[in-house]
Every structure is written in C-alpha cells, then in structure tokens.
Design a protein around this nucleic acid. Structure first.
Lengths: 226, 226
DNA sequence: GTTGATTGTTACCTTAATGTTATTAATTTT
DNA sequence: AAAATTAATAACATTAAGGTAACAATCAAC
C-alpha cells in the first residue's frame, strides 16, 4: 500500500493540536481526516474506514475511551490501529485506554519527530500483518513475495522466467497449459520468442525440481503434476 | 520478550510489603528481586538491570527519592521504569518522585489486583516504546530513532539513504523488494533518480555489512537475508 | 518399422541487468 | 565560508538470464 493511500483520522477538540499533528502527517504523505469531538470521530471512522486513528483522551461530549470502545465494536474497524493522545503522567487513561482496545499511546506535549516515527512504526506493524503471498502444492511451496520456492525442504531461488513459468503451471496442478497460454502469461503477447524457448525453460525446471513434476502433452503443452 | 524474562526489583524496608508484592508478581510470572533498603536497591539495580523498579519512598538510610536519582544517572538504567510506593495523601513525595525521574507511583495500602494491572500497563508501555523504534534481525539491530545500527556487535552510523534502504530490506528479511518498491519507499514516488542509484547504495551496504547479506534477484530486485 | 512432426538437449551467443569506479553535485558540519 | 560527508550520475566492466541454433530423441500415425 502506498503512503498516499493511507488514511489517518485525527480526533481532538483542540484546533491547535489538529493543526500541528495534521500538518506533520500530511507532510509525510498521509491522507489526514480530522474530527473535533468523539461523536464526530466515531462517525467519520465508520464512514472513512481509516487505517489509523489518533484519539485524544480528554474531550468534551464523548471522551476518547468511550469513542474507542464504540470503534472497536465495529467489525469494519477491527484491524484499525487506535492510538491515544494523553498528557504525561495521566496513568489512569493509559490503563483504561489499553482496556478499551487501544494499540498504543502518544504523550503530550507532542514532538513532531516522535509522532511521525511512531505513526510509521505502527503502520509498519499493520502492514506486516497481511499474509505472505504463497502457494502450496504438495511438497512444493511457492513464495511469490520472496521469489523463491521450497522443494522437498530445500530452498531454491529461480530466475524470473523460470519462477513465473513454474508459478503458472503450479497454479493449477494437473491442468494442461497450451504453449500459447504459456507465452501469453509468462512472456506477454507482444513479445515474440523462438519455438524452443519454452522447452528450454521447462528443461531447467526439470533439472531443478525433478523430471516427473512436469508432464509433456505432445501437440498441446505442459502440465505440472503434484 | 517473555514474561519470565522480565525482572522486577522491589525495594522496601518492610518485609511484609516485600512478601505480599513479591508474591503477587511472582505469581504473574515475573522474575522478582528484592532489596531491603535504598543502598542495597541501587546496588542490585546496577547489577541486575531490571526492567521495572518499585521503590518505597520512605526508607531508612537512603530514601526512595535519593535512590531514584542515583539510578537515573546510570546509563544502563536509562530505560528502566521506576515507580514509587507512597502512602496515600503524601503529595510531597509524588512531586519529588517525578522530579527524581519516576515514571509512576503506587499508593499504599496496596491492592494486589491494582498493583498487578499497573505493573502490566507499565511494562506494556516499556515494551511498546522499546519495540517501536528498534528492529532486530539476527545479529543486526536497527535503531530507527538514532539512525544507527549494530552489526555483529559493532555500532555503525549509516547515512540516511543507506539507513533507509537497509531499514526497508531488513523489515522483511527474505522478501524481494522490487526496484519500484525501493524507489517508492526510500526515495519517494515523485523523485526520479538514475538507473544505477539503487545499485550503488546496495554496494555500499554490502561493503559495510557483508556481501552475503544482500541477494540480487536479477530482473526483480534485492532481498536481505538473515 | 518407417516417417514426419514434435519435443528434448546441449552449447553457445546476445543482451539486459547489475556491479564498479571515478567524478561531480549537493548537503551537512564545523 | 571551508571542509567533510553524502548522494547522484556517468561511463565502463561484469554477470547471468534468456534466447537460439543445431542436432538428438521421442512419439504417433500410417
């Protein structure tokens, strides 16, 4: 996810805080939404589904704790990170804040650098929660993120074309992929390559992963067998 | 960090307090060390480097305030959390305690439940702060706050770009970062730099951290290996 | 079994991608 | 402002991925 696609909701009743925090976060490239009280905050949170919510604890009408509790009950906001703004030494609000489902807190007075690095750290944590893009087929594990595979317990790094070819074939074990399909998918339909190109790559895969994983269907194409 | 690896130092001249507090904290799984006066407390603090110190204010020989001041001067105990035990209504000691560098205070009479939840909250805070800004990967420690790293026990100060590049790659060891991703993250998507820029920075990192920590996947990008 | 088409194999070549170094520009520090 | 450090780039070297040609082996049909 790109930075500019990350929404941060800022809830505080003090315009000064909204401005300074908002400014610093916008400057970093985040999309900043603001609200001036707990009620508005909850409303905007439900509407905008931000990735991170920064909530002041002390607010008139509805305080941060209460707002946080409501936010946490909304299934759409389950994975949203909530962090509180508290005055130093306000220990009660910290305990209560964590109880209400907060992930972290930031103490006032706010130092822009600390704030920004904390926000980054929090979002990083958030990002890391999404699962790795991996595909398991029998004893073969294909990790698209790391461009590597694990075959019979051994880790292998494959060159791009080989990796993509394997990736394609293994995406539907048993299915026969016609030569055209393979060219389309791995090479792209504009590129024109010679007639033996696919064969050679298949051969390399056979060398590395074992001969019997790839079956040739003469006149048609290849298939990966589990 | 696991609970059983967390050390709490308890300093109080009253054996009853030591026993009841110590019992409750041990029960929670923490490693508890005790001392019966300020001097012994300071000594054990320096020796054991606990994560949290609970200090009684009123003690013969050396009171908690004085002990706290000494503790705070020790660089190894910079990040240790210090919390005081004070009698209710003893406002003076609270103010003086914060001045001396305390993070919190607990009032007597002690209620075990309150005590335990307070300790948990304090340690959570400690953990968050500690973890948020530093990243450990194998023998490499990256301190994002101070823009420095520790590699194989040696401290290194890296220039910004190198640091951010390393920081990115090491944030997900094994993951291949495509050139686009790297440019996006380290340089920002508006900035346009030449084609060899990333390579040069990778090379510098290889020089400083060892060649084999960075693997090139031709046609794709780079990855950091643990 | 022979034949022709299709695929396998090998070695080699080309080229895109990356590595390297030196130099210049920009930035920070003093 | 000078010095030192860092960043970017240009120019060249190196590497290995990817492609190809040439030939061998295979299979299917007759």
């Amino acid at each position: 996810m790109k930075k500019k696609d990350i929404k941060i909701l800022l809830v505080d009743d003090e315009p000064d805080i909204l401005e300074i925090v908002g400014y610093n976060l916008s400057n970093e490239g985040y999309q900043v939404i603001t609200a001036e009280n707990g009620q508005e905050g909850v409303k905007k949170a439900k509407k905008e589904l931000p990735h991170l919510i920064i909530l002041d604890v002390m607010m008139p009408e509805m305080d941060g704790i209460e707002a946080c509790e409501i936010i946490r009950k909304n299934p759409d906001l389950e994975n949203t990170i909530v962090t509180f703004l508290t005055a130093r030494g306000e220990d009660y609000s910290q305990v209560a804040g964590f109880d209400a489902g907060a992930d972290d807190y930031i103490t006032k007075p706010i130092k822009p650098k600390v704030l920004v690095s904390k926000v980054k750290a929090l979002l990083r944590r958030f990002k890391e929660e999404d699962v790795a893009d991996t595909l398991k087929v029998g004893s073969l594990v294909i990790n698209r993120d790391e461009y590597k595979i694990i075959s019979k317990g051994k880790e292998l790094v494959l060159p791009r074309k080989e990796f993509e070819l394997l990736s394609l074939l293994a995406s539907k074990p048993g299915k026969v992929f016609k030569r055209d399909e393979i060219l389309d998918s791995v090479w792209g339909n504009e590129v024109v390559v010679g007639g033996r190109t696919i064969d050679v790559h298949i051969r390399k895969l056979r060398e590395k992963l074992g001969d019997k994983s790839f079956k040739t269907i003469k006149g048609v194409g290849y298939k990966f067998v589990d």
